[in-house]
Amino acid sequence: MSEELLRLEHLSIDYKVKGGYLSAVNDVNLSVHRGEILAVVGESGCGKSTIAHSIMNLLPGGNEEIEGKIIFKGDDLRTYSRRQMEAIRGKDIGMIFQNPLDSLNPVYKTGKQVEEAILLDGIDRVQAWNKVLDLYRDVKMPDAEVRANSFPHELSGGMRQRVMIAMMLSRNPELLIADEPTTALDVTIEAQILEIIKDLKKTYDTAIMLITHNFGLVAEVADKIAVMYAGEVIEYGDVYEIFEKPLHPYTTLLMKALPRKTKHEGRLQTIDGNVPRILDKKPGCRFANRCPYAMERCQSETPPEIYVSEEHKCRCFLMEEGKEADA
């Protein structure tokens, strides 16, 4: 297997909030190799963006407590100084943020913002601007020149997303973290952006962490999937294996909620109940209040990560009991 580029070891992140500590990420162990696309999927609010921001050292600061290691090319990024982090951010590790409006400056032309990123690599201005226009064309921006001179509010949602993608491409990072990069793109442009991402992987051996709710994207490009629920990775493995035979009860139920029919054929299948907001960790399986297979021990003991094969792990007691979820 190719070189491991990023490894998260026992990563836990709590936010201090009114009334206690909210456990946003709990004991996450994951790695991403060069030339590999890891899709991170899971319940809304399960900690995906929190993990992404922690790798970039971009958590809001002030109210979070982190434990564990974030190892990038052998170094624990948590020991890096601010200067060291700034030096690798964008250049070694690139990120496409979930909400482009938050990360684009409303009073600068979008092309200038991409140019800023390019200038960091010591390219002169004329060349940099031409590169901006090339990148805009690469991401299929219509009227590239006009759009490079547009302000964020003058672009459609999908155009703003393409600006973010162009900005990331301009630095050609070794590790790319893409947080819901294509939610505002129609399927044809999305397919073209996926080609660009696959190209990065093939040509530059880029490692990619793709955070998404879109199973279509996962099915198209991912090599591995990590499924998260309430702050924990509850299942991880090869994309083919997990699509064919998901093991964790949450994964199996999630796959069944995909809208594959019309409303005349009935309501969509859902998972009863809500995700609990977990204040102050306690033992027990976090899915127990919604799980159709919950046993007594699930309420009081925390299921460990159980390897069902070398590359497939699952955090559920059913694996120990040799039983299967077949919801």
Partner: peptide, 20 residues
């Protein structure tokens, strides 16, 4: 406008059922 683009499919299913 894109009301479920940031939702996982199970919450999305709950919201779509609610709208119906």
């Amino acid at each position: 406008d894109e009301p479920t683009s940031a939702l996982d499919v199970s919450v999305q299913a709950q919201i779509l059922n609610l709208l119906l």
